[in-house]
Nucleic acid binder design. Structure first.
Lengths: 98, 98
DNA sequence: ATTAGTACCTTGCGATACAAGGTATTCAAA
DNA sequence: TTTGAATACCTTGTATCGCAAGGTACTAAT
């Protein structure tokens, strides 16, 4: 059932703090949301392509450089939409639960 | 983002009251969840095949007979699982929102 | 008998997530 | 200097889900 929630969770995560892939996987795992590498890379690329995310390269102390993603202004607007959708879904479920 | 929520919503809907397809579409629409016929029929068939739903034919005053679906005992157990998943997703989102 | 309305269902398409595998960079040890 | 381990990037193939469109069958009214 978590399908479809992933994009929302990632945008929530990247709205204040820039992260690279392993950060994201780790942070989501701490929030009990499991996500695979092969899922994440295409999703990040798509959000970048759509202008919702931007990235910058940063050196690492150990290993190759990393792509640090952050939400753009356009992404913030899209996130506001998703917040509204999330509220609506909660309303729907609560209504059906009665 | 409502993707994946549909199965849960339908099982919530059918846990107490038997409905046929147009009932379900109508009731979900009232809860602000739009679902298409072509989505619903395969989903109901799958839940039936998996033993989570059962149906019985009922005559209609106008038109051909209808399949009225209701949640089975096995479906009730599956629904308890989905309720737990739903709680977890809410926890995840709330945690990421901080 | 024909038509309109209702209810059932199927097929083809696009999007999403997973599993598996592949490329490239860095650093340390042989 | 070269080899290998670790890290980080990405792609491909598969399954599932939801939608759009189209199709079949039964009922009732004209």
């Amino acid at each position: 059932m978590r399908k479809g929630m992933l994009e929302y969770c990632i945008m929530l995560l990247l709205r204040h703090q820039a992260c690279y892939t392993n950060d994201i996987i780790q942070r989501l795992r701490e929030a009990e949301m499991i996500v695979m590498e092969g899922t994440l890379y295409p999703l990040l690329s798509r959000l970048k392509r759509d202008g919702l995310l931007a990235y910058e390269w940063r050196e690492s102390t150990q290993g190759p450089p990393r792509k640090y993603y952050l939400l753009t202004d356009e992404g913030q607007q899209a996130l506001a939409q998703l917040n509204a959708s999330w509220e609506e879904i909660q309303r729907t479920v609560n209504l059906l639960k009665q």
